[in-house]
Design a protein around this nucleic acid. Structure first.
Length: 910
RNA sequence: GGGUCGUUAGCUCAGUUGGUUAGAGUGUUGCCUUGACAUGGCAGAGGUCGCUAGUUCGAGUCUAGCACGACCCACCA
C-alpha cells in the first residue's frame, strides 16, 4: 500500500467507474424476487443546476442509506433524474440567446423550444456527472427526465383524469402575476419583501347632491390612505367600516377619483379596518386581493389598468399610458400635489410581494387560469401523516404540515411560458373545451361531438413545473406509460421507502407528491420523509451569490477528498438544525480518512493473508473477545441510527469515528502490538488474524460513509485477499449484530474483563511513558535507542514491565478507592518507577520526580475511578443521594414506570 | 398578528425517558519524530450550559416568564 492515500479526482473516478461498470448500482427489479426491495427517488435537480453544497448533503445522506441497505442484501433502487425547471431554464436560455444576438421575440414557439432542447442535450446532465464525483451510487440505467416521453404521457394522463373528475378547472381569478416573466405564479412562489414606502393620504372630493348645491361648506372630501397612489385609476369604490361613525353619513354617497373625474360609490364593508390609515379604503378590484373580494361582493366593476408587464394601459388618461408603476407613482403624486389633493405623506415599512424567481414586485392580475382544487387532496395527505402512514423526520414538521394543509388554497397550475408540459386542452371556435391526450385524439373527439371536422387550438399555457414533479415517485416507475402498465417494477418498488430532501420544498413538492400519490395510487408515496436543514457558511449566514460566500463542493472534494466532505456532512446532519460548514471540520475528517488508511497499512505489514476467511468464532484470547463485543455494540448502534424511522446520521458517524480512532487504533491495536512483541506464537497469530478480521468488519460499516477510501483499502490491502469471494466492498455483505451473535455465547469472566480493561488502561500511560522516557528514562537502560530495532524493542518491553509494576503497586496500595493519602500515593508511584527497573539517576531532582509521579497518580486515579463505576451497580449515583433513590435508580431505564411508582411510594411514606 | 426553532469551551457543534467530575472536533499551551499514522502521540488549560423564578433528594435536560437570534404562514390602507 502507498504511504499516503490518494484522494485525487482521478483516483476516485477510477473506483467509481469500476463500481458503475460492474453493475453494482443496478437494481435487479423484477428479476430478484428473493431480495427485499429498497427504494429511494432522488429529488431531481434542475437541468440548469450545478452541484451546490445542499445537493451534496442531500445525496450523501441518500447514498449512505442506499449503500447500507445494499450491503444488507436489499435490492436497492435509487432512481436519479432531472427536472425541466420551466421558469429557470427558459430564463437561462433566453438570456443566452439574447447575449448571442438572437431576438427571442422573433422566434416562433417551435423555434424557441428547439433552442432549449438543444441546450438541454448539451448541458442538462452536468449536475448528474457531478453527482458521480460525490460517489452517488444511483441506478443510472433508470435515470428519468420530467419531460421525457414517458413522463409527458404520465402528465397528460394525470391532468385529464383530474379534469374529468372536476378537480382541475379553469377560472377567471385574481392571481399573482410576475410582470417580468409575464406569467401567473402560485402562492408558494411569492416572497414577501419588506420595503420602505410612502403612505399617501389623498383627498377624494365628494360629489354634491343636486339639492345641496353650493351651500354645503367644505371640506367636502373623503381622505384615503394608500401606498400605491398609481392604482387610483382602477378604483371603483371607497369602502369604510359600517360601524365607523366618522363615515356613516357618507355611505351611499359618491366621490370622485382624482385625475380621472370618475364618480365612485362610498360603500360599507366589515373587512375594512378602522384603525388602518384613515379608515377609508380605496377599492381597486382588479389589482388587490382584498379589494377583489370586496369588489365581487358589491358587484363593483374591475378596471384593469396594467398590461402584462405592469405598465399602465389605455384605460388611464393619456399622459400616464405606458408608464411603469414606479414612474406612474411619481407622476400621480406630483399631479395630486398640484391639485392640492395630497394631504399628507408618511414614511412607512410595508411588505411587497415579489416573484421568487424573477425578484421583481408582483402585480395581482385578473386572468383566466387553470386551478387544482386542493381541499380533499390535502385532507388525505394530512391524515396520512396523522396516522403515521408516512413519518416526517424530524417530527417537529408535523405541526407545520398540518397548519399548511388546513389552510390550503386552490393551486394555480397554468403558466404563460413556453418550456413545460403543454396543457392538454383544445378549444373550438365556439369556445368548447376538448380534453385529450393528443391533437389527433382531440380532433377525433371534436368530430364525434360536432359531427364534422373542426379546426382546434391547443391551450397556449404550460403546467407548473411542480405539477409534473408531483408525479415523480410513481411516474418514474412507468406509471401510465403504455409500455409498462401494470409493470412489476412499480409493484416491487412502490411505495418507496424514504424521501430525503430539504424542508424548503416541503409544500412545493413533498405535500403535492403525497396528494397525487393518494389520488392516483391510493397510498402514500414514501414511508419516511427525512427533511434535512439548510447549510450555512461558517458565520451562520445563508449562502448566496450576492454575499459571495457560496462554497463549491467540487472544490472541497478536490482539496480534502470526497470522503472527508461526505463524512463531515453526515456528522453534521443533526435533525432539525441548520448546519454551518466549517472547513476545519472537513480537514479533521480528512485526517480521519488518513487514520483509517494507516490502520490498514499497519495490518498490511503483519502477515495475515486470507484474514477474511479466518474463523473468528474459534478465538480464545479475551482481548479479541472483548473487542468483538465492542464491535458488536458498535454495529448495533450504527444499525439503530441508520434505521429509516430514525435517520440519525450524525450519531452513526460519531460512533464509527470514535470506535475506529479511540478504541480500535488507540487501544486495541496498541495492545496487539504488545502481543506481537511478547506473546507466544499462537497468541501472535491470533492477534494478527483477529485484528484484521475485525478491521474488515469495521471497514464495511464505514463504507456507506466513506466509500472511496474503504473500497481502495479493500482492493489494495493484501489482508483482504480471499479465496474466491466478492472482490468489491460495495457489494460485500454488511457485518451486522446478527453476524457477531456468537459473541453472546461467550462468557467473559470478570477477571478476564478486568485484565483486558487493565491492558486498555495501560495503553495510554504506556504511550505517555514512552513520551516521558525517551529522553530521560529509557536512555538509562538503553544507551543507543535508535541504533537497532532490537534495542528499541527491548526498551519498550522494559517500559511495559515497568508500567505493569506501577499498576500492581497502585492496586495493592489501594490507590483507586481513595483510601490512601495523595502524598503517600505519590510516594508509591515514585517507588513504582524504581521497582520497575526504571530507576531514575541518583541526582535526578526529587521535585521533578514527584511531579511526574503526581501526574501518573492523577491518571491512574481517574482510570480506577472509571473502572469502579463500570463494575459497581450503583455507580451512577451521587454518594450523598438517599439510599432509596440509589435503589430506585438502579432499575433499568425501560422500567421507568416502576421507578416512578417507587419514587412516589418512598416519598409518600416519608 | 399566528406558529416553529435556537442560545452549552475561543470557534463549530453533540448531549438519548432528569442521575458520578457536562463531552467531541477544531484552536490553544507544554513535551515527544517512534517501525501504521506529525494528516501522529501524551499531558494540560479553557464552561455560573442566555437570564430569572419554579418543580425535584438531584435540572444543560421538565414548567413559567424574560432577553437576544433565526425561520415559516398570514396581513399590511
Amino acid at each position: 500500500m502507498e504511504k499516503r492515500y490518494d484522494f485525487s479526482a482521478d483516483a476516485e473516478r477510477a473506483l467509481y467507474d469500476d463500481w458503475d461498470s460492474c453493475g453494482a448500482f443496478r437494481c435487479r427489479g423484477e428479476g430478484s424476487s428473493k431480495q427485499k426491495p429498497y427504494t429511494i427517488m432522488m429529488p431531481p435537480p434542475n437541468v440548469t443546476g450545478r452541484l451546490h453544497i445542499g445537493h451534496a448533503l442531500d445525496n450523501t445522506l441518500q447514498d449512505i442509506l442506499v449503500r447500507y441497505h445494499r450491503m444488507r442484501g436489499f435490492d436497492c433502487l435509487w432512481l436519479p433524474g432531472t427536472d425541466h425547471a420551466g421558469i429557470a431554464t427558459q430564463l437561462l436560455v433566453s438570456k443566452q440567446l439574447a447575449s448571442s444576438g438572437v431576438d427571442c421575440e422573433q422566434l416562433t414557439r417551435e423555434e424557441f423550444l428547439e433552442h432549449i432542447w438543444r441546450w438541454k442535450d448539451q448541458y442538462g446532465n452536468i449536475i448528474l456527472q457531478q453527482l458521480r464525483r460525490l460517489g452517488a451510487s444511483c441506478d443510472w440505467s433508470r435515470a428519468r427526465f420530467t419531460m421525457d416521453e414517458g413522463f409527458s404521457r404520465s402528465v397528460r394522463h394525470a391532468f385529464l383524469r383530474m379534469y374529468e373528475d372536476g378537480l382541475i378547472y379553469r377560472a377567471e381569478r385574481l392571481v399573482n402575476w410576475d410582470p417580468r416573466l409575464e406569467t401567473a405564479i402560485s402562492d408558494l412562489e411569492v416572497n414577501q419583501v419588506s420595503l420602505r414606502g410612502k403612505l399617501c393620504f389623498i383627498d377624494y372630493p365628494l360629489m354634491c347632491e343636486p339639492d345641496e348645491g353650493l351651500s354645503s361648506s367644505p371640506p367636502a372630501v373623503i381622505t384615503v390612505a394608500t401606498m400605491r397612489p398609481e392604482t387610483l385609476f382602477g378604483d371603483s369604490a371607497v369602502a369604510v367600516h359600517p360601524e365607523d361613525e366618522r363615515y356613516t353619513s357618507l355611505v351611499g354617497k359618491f366621490c370622485s377619483v382624482p385625475l380621472t373625474g370618475r364618480s365612485v360609490p362610498i360603500i360599507a364593508d366589515k373587512r375594512v379596518d378602522r384603525e388602518q390609515g384613515t379608515g377609508a379604503l380605496k377599492i381597486t378590484p382588479a389589482h388587490d386581493f382584498l379589494d377583489f373580494d370586496i369588489g365581487s361582493d358589491h358587484f363593483l366593476e374591475s378596471l384593469i389598468i396594467f398590461d402584462k408587464r405592469a405598465k399602465l394601459n389605455d384605460q388611464v388618461p393619456k399622459a400616464y399610458r405606458g408608464l411603469s408603476r414606479e414612474q406612474a407613482r411619481k407622476e400621480v403624486v406630483s399631479a395630486l400635489v398640484s391639485l392640492g389633493l395630497l394631504r399628507e405623506v408618511r414614511d412607512e415599512e410595508h411588505s411587497v410581494p415579489h416573484g421568487e424567481r424573477s425578484g421583481v414586485a408582483l402585480e395581482p392580475r385578473l386572468t383566466k387560469q387553470w386551478f387544482v382544487s386542493m381541499d380533499v387532496l390535502a385532507a388525505r395527505a394530512l391524515r396520512a401523516v396523522d396516522d403515521g402512514d408516512t413519518l416526517l423526520l424530524p417530527q417537529i414538521w408535523h405541526s407545520t404540515w398540518r397548519n399548511w394543509l388546513d389552510n390550503i388554497q386552490p393551486w394555480c397550475i397554468s403558466r404563460q411560458l413556453l418550456w413545460g408540459h403543454r396543457i392538454p386542452i383544445w378549444y373550438t371556435e365556439s369556445g368548447d373545451e376538448i380534453a385529450a391526450v393528443s391533437e389527433e385524439s382531440a380532433l377525433e373527439q371534436a368530430k364525434q361531438k360536432f359531427g364534422k371536422s373542426l379546426p382546434l387550438m391547443q391551450d397556449e399555457d404550460v403546467l407548473d413545473t411542480w405539477f409534473s414533479s408531483s408525479l415523480w415517485p410513481f411516474s418514474t416507475l412507468g406509471w401510465s406509460d403504455e409500455k409498462f402498465i401494470d409493470n412489476s417494477l412499480l409493484q416491487h418498488h412502490f411505495p418507496t421507502d424514504v424521501l430525503v430532501t430539504g424542508f424548503d420544498i416541503l409544500f412545493f413538492w413533498v405535500a403535492r407528491m403525497m396528494m397525487m400519490s393518494f389520488y392516483f395510487m391510493g397510498c402514500v408515496p414514501f414511508r419516511v420523509v427525512y427533511l434535512h436543514a439548510l447549510i450555512r457558511d461558517a458565520r451562520g449566514r445563508k449562502m448566496s451569490k450576492s454575499l459571495g460566500n457560496v462554497v463549491n463542493p467540487i472544490d472541497l472534494m478536490d482539496r480534502y477528498g470526497c470522503d472527508a466532505l461526505r463524512f463531515t456532512l453526515a456528522s453534521q446532519a443533526v435533525p432539525g438544525r441548520d448546519l454551518r460548514l466549517v472547513e476545519k471540520r472537513i480537514e479533521g475528517n480528512r485526517n480521519f480518512v488518513t487514520k483509517l488508511w494507516n490502520a490498514a497499512r499497519f495490518l498490511e505489514m503483519q502477515d495475515c493473508r486470507y484474514a477474511r476467511d479466518f474463523d473468528i468464532g474459534s478465538i480464545r484470547g479475551s482481548l479479541h473477545k472483548w473487542m468483538l463485543v465492542r464491535l458488536r455494540e458498535t454495529a448495533s448502534k450504527v444499525e439503530r441510527a441508520l434505521d429509516d424511522r430514525v435517520c440519525l446520521f450524525h450519531e452513526a458517524s460519531s460512533v464509527l469515528y470514535h470506535f475506529l480512532w479511540d478504541v480500535f487504533c488507540d487501544q486495541y491495536l496498541e495492545i496487539v502490538k504488545l502481543v506481537l512483541l511478547t506473546g507466544s506464537d499462537a497468541e501472535k497469530n491470533e492477534a494478527r488474524f483477529s485484528s484484521a478480521w475485525i478491521f474488515y468488519g469495521l471497514l464495511r460499516m464505514l463504507h456507506p460513509f466513506v466509500p472511496f477510501v474503504t473500497e481502495k483499502i479493500f482492493r489494495t490491502a493484501d489482508i483482504f485477499a480471499s479465496r474466491g469471494k466478492s472482490e468489491r466492498l460495495i457489494t460485500a455483505q454488511w457485518l451486522g449484530v446478527d453476524d457477531i451473535a456468537f459473541a453472546d455465547n461467550w462468557t467473559i469472566e470478570v477477571e478476564e474483563l478486568e485484565w483486558v480493561l487493565g491492558l486498555v488502561k495501560e495503553v495510554r500511560p504506556l504511550r505517555s511513558c514512552l513520551g516521558l522516557s525517551a529522553k530521560d528514562i529509557v536512555p538509562l537502560r538503553c544507551e543507543d535507542l535508535t541504533s537497532s530495532a532490537e534495542s528499541y524493542i527491548n526498551s519498550w518491553a522494559v517500559v511495559v514491565r515497568g508500567m505493569a509494576g506501577i499498576e500492581w503497586l497502585g492496586r495493592k496500595s489501594g490507590l483507586g478507592n481513595g483510601s490512601v493519602s495523595k502524598e503517600k500515593s505519590i510516594g508509591f508511584v515514585y517507588q513504582g518507577f524504581i521497582n520497575a527497573g526504571l530507576g531514575l539517576p541518583s541526582d535526578f531532582p526529587i521535585e521533578e520526580a514527584k511531579n511526574r509521579a503526581l501526574k501518573q497518580f492523577n491518571y491512574w486515579n481517574s482510570q480506577f475511578h472509571a473502572l469502579d463505576n463500570k463494575l459497581s451497580p450503583n455507580g451512577k449515583f451521587a454518594k450523598n443521594a438517599p439510599e432509596e433513590v440509589k435503589l430506585a435508580s438502579a432499575l433499568k431505564r425501560d422500567e421507568a414506570e416502576r421507578k416512578r411508582e417507587l419514587f412516589s411510594k418512598i416519598y409518600n411514606e416519608m
